[in-house]
Amino acid sequence: MLLKRYTGNMLLLILLFLLLTFFFLGDVFIPNAIDFSRYPQLHSVLVVFLGLFLESIPFLFLGAIASSFIQLYISEEIIQRMIPKGPVTAIFAAIGAALIIPVCECAIIPVVRKLIQKGVPVHAGVVLLVTAPILNVIVFGSTYYAFQNDPSILYGRIILCVLTAVIVGLFIYIFSRKDVVKEEKLEAVHEHHVHDFPPSKWTSFIEHTSQEFFMVGRYFIIGALFASIFQVLMDRAILAEIGQAPIKGTALMMGIAFVLSLCSSADAFVAASFSHSFLPGSILGFLVFGPMLDLKNVLIMMACFKRSFVFTYVLLVFAVVFSLCLIAGGLISKGGL
């Protein structure tokens, strides 16, 4: 026991030493040792990965803080009182909440997980997952700005997002199981000690935030690594050739949105750069599906929910968004929207 503790401390000291060495000297001796210009693609993957990581990390952390806050300070009774009983009212209440909450996909998943554990019905939680990344002022603003000449994209994005939320929410309400959250048993330990030791709340808040952050973070890192590889290797020119077919084009744009893993407040600009080669319905597919599901947030979901639930959710959201985009694409091309 004593020996083990000793090795543990030694290991930590070595790590600290390494961290500090690289902090002060990393950019001095490593660029001399490894010539990144000889591996331009690898170098670009690493740069894109670091960008994606730095952009998302504050929001991942915010999500962990919010989730710990709910865990420790919001009791199940409050939630029971706040949530409307009927499924339809609950779904619309969740859409309203999504409009107010100014967070995007990285932060919302752990929060929804915690809310469901605290007794929020699964269908309401799912509606939050679907709508929170799209229904906020920043996303409206950037979509409007990127598609000034085509306002149907902005309206279409909002309408399709709400419709998807309602359909997916109702479907989950009818067919859902209650136990969708991962590792529920362990949480019981929590409840117990929170009530027993009120003075330690602050410490457990820190502990909780940190652990939540590292749990979600490691899935995020894997997702972000894959996303950056796709970002760098995918040749956009080849895509343009398939672009004009409505069905193939929509499926393709949704696929691209999935692998690129853009932040919902930035994806409109990228979508605008595709707008010449793809039909409006396909562009909507990109703008509606991307924020709801992409490589990085599917991995975050894996950290928070049971695999079977993630699987159902992915299929359901894909099917609903896909059919809605085809309908919307038809309407736009007839000038109906």
């Binding site: 690289f22 990393g26 990581f53």
Partner: peptide
């Protein structure tokens, strides 16, 4: 991975 990347990359 991200920590060391941030430390060593200059370009």
């Amino acid at each position: 991975i991200p920590i060391f990347l941030g430390f060593i990359l200059t370009d």
